[in-house]
């Protein structure tokens, strides 16, 4: 290509087999004008240093694998253009997660949080397949649709100041997902999830920082989900006081 430009990538490296602490390594990469940050990492892997470890797959901002810290901000590296950065680009693993190696972080803790919110349709009586699809109006779909767009890229956990202090905090994506199911007209599990959300380290631990929604690459707005979930958990609890029949325990 004509206007080949070079950029320096300062990449955080860590191999638990040999390193006590993470270090950085610089790579000079000839970049194409249309490249995303991920393209440069793949160039390093393919042509400069095959020992660099990072996750990626779809390269179209939907599989959620390639979240990293780019110049200090959580980014989906396949979506963010290199042209928005200067001559030096720093790439590090997402903060607030244990690092496995180089740019790869540990997700098992998140997977547990994810499962904790019961992210599935809960019904007192399951509908038979023979009864066909349930009806759901476009308006009912609209109620929860954008909260169902989360790709689990973890940028919101990396940005969340509460997660930074309390790693056990249920966190934005998991709360948004639980809330998504509670808002679904086909679901009857809001009561169960409200009880989960009234537990320690869940919705009320949120400090309204809104960082999660700012970094979300899919405009899911998890901060709105957390706020709505808080309100629902409170109303549900208050209703339980007024109507003892529905009170828990």
């Amino acid at each position: 290509m004509s206007d080949v430009q070079k950029k320096t990538f300062v990449v955080t490296r860590f191999d638990p087999d040999r390193d006590q602490v993470p270090k950085t390594q610089s790579y000079e990469v000839p970049v194409e004008p249309d490249w995303k940050v991920l393209d440069a990492l793949n160039f390093i892997k393919d042509h400069i240093d095959p020992t660099l470890s990072h996750r990626w797959s779809c390269r179209m901002a939907v599989c959620g694998s390639c979240g990293m810290l780019v110049n200090g901000e959580p980014k989906l590296t396949c979506k963010v253009a290199l042209s928005s950065y200067g001559d030096t680009v720093e790439v590090a693993p997402l903060p607030n997660f244990p690092v496995i190696r180089d740019l790869v972080v540990e997700l098992d803790g998140f997977m547990e949080k994810f499962e904790h919110v019961k992210p599935w349709i809960i019904r007192a009586k399951e509908r038979a397949v023979e009864d066909g699809p349930m009806r759901q109006s476009p308006e009912e779909l609209e109620e929860f649709k954008h909260f169902s767009m989360c790709i689990n890229c973890m940028l919101c956990y990396a940005a969340c100041p509460v997660v930074a202090n309390e790693p056990e905090f249920l966190g934005p994506a998991a709360i948004a997902l639980g809330h998504r199911y509670s808002l679904d007209s086909r679901d009857e599990g809001a009561g169960e999830r409200n009880r989960i959300f009234r537990g320690e380290g869940t919705v009320f631990a949120c400090s309204y920082a809104n960082e999660c929604s700012e970094v979300c690459p899919k405009n899911v707005d998890p901060a709105a989900a957390v706020n709505q979930a808080k309100l629902k958990a409170v109303i549900d609890w208050a209703a339980g006081l007024v109507l003892p029949r529905r009170a828990e325990e």
């Binding site: 599935w120 349709i121 399951e126 509908r127 397949v129 699809p133 349930m134 759901q136 109006s137 476009p138 779909l141 929860f144 649709k145 169902s148 199911y181 679904d184 086909r186 679901d187």
Partner: peptide, 9 residues
């Protein structure tokens, strides 16, 4: 659909 897939309507 029963499992929650958000099919367009």
């Amino acid at each position: 659909e029963h499992w929650g897939c958000p099919w367009s309507r």
